[in-house]
Design a protein around this nucleic acid. Structure first.
Lengths: 110, 110
DNA sequence: ATAAATTTGTCAAAAAATGACAAGTCTTAT
DNA sequence: ATAAGACTTGTCATTTTTTGACAAATTTAT
């Protein structure tokens, strides 16, 4: 795993866009998206739609798996933030995820 | 913090309901809910609606804050599970949550 | 001052979550 | 065996949320 950004996904997109010297309008077009809405995404006022990740990866020649990690950690980070979930509670959440995994495993054996 | 359940929230409700010897119909009525839908909630086929947490706490005389912790950890656990988020990535997610907190702080000072 | 780039507001359309109800299964008591 | 109660499943209309689209600001650079 390469180091992931400690920024929001929106800020990350803006970073990529600036590095590649694209305007909102230009990038939005490549993403099949309205430039006004891309602006909102970059400013954290809307979410980037997961189904556009492959397109985004292609545009900036990024590894899709890593980009998805960037996305997933942003989404969960947002969830943690919005619910005021402490580290202690996050530990519990992780255990519950583990529990769901075992539930799923036992389903598959049957 | 008292120990939280390593079960889904639906299973937890079922536990509470059984301990108190209520039928689905009885509990559903108290929750202003259709018994069929409560069944789905207990079986993990629908989500419990957060706005009913106060009612649920009252019915079973539970501490609302702890119940909310139970709920939040279930939701985030589900999110972790559904996105196949590893422990390593979860650590990144937590850092991003922290980043959002600092963003918010600096917004408030201005 | 002008033009391009970005931001913000609004609203209709699409998608997802919820409520409601009918019909089914399973269990238990008679 | 069957009737009654408890629970499950499927479906669909309604509500809520998310998204797409466009107009109208505001900001930035020249």
């Amino acid at each position: 795993m390469t180091s992931l950004m400690k920024t929001t996904f929106g800020e990350y997109i803006r970073l990529l866009r600036n590095e590649n010297e694209l305007t909102l309008t230009q990038l939005a077009a490549k993403l099949n998206l309205d430039s006004a809405n891309l602006s909102k995404i970059e400013n954290g006022k809307r979410d980037f739609d997961e189904k556009r990740l492959p397109k985004l990866a292609k545009i900036f020649k990024l590894n899709l798996t890593e980009l998805r990690n960037e996305y997933v950690t942003d989404q969960i980070g947002k969830h943690i933030y919005e619910t005021n979930c402490t580290k202690q509670l996050l530990q519990v959440a992780e255990e519950k995820a583990e529990y769901r995994r075992t539930l799923n495993k036992s389903l598959q054996t049957q």
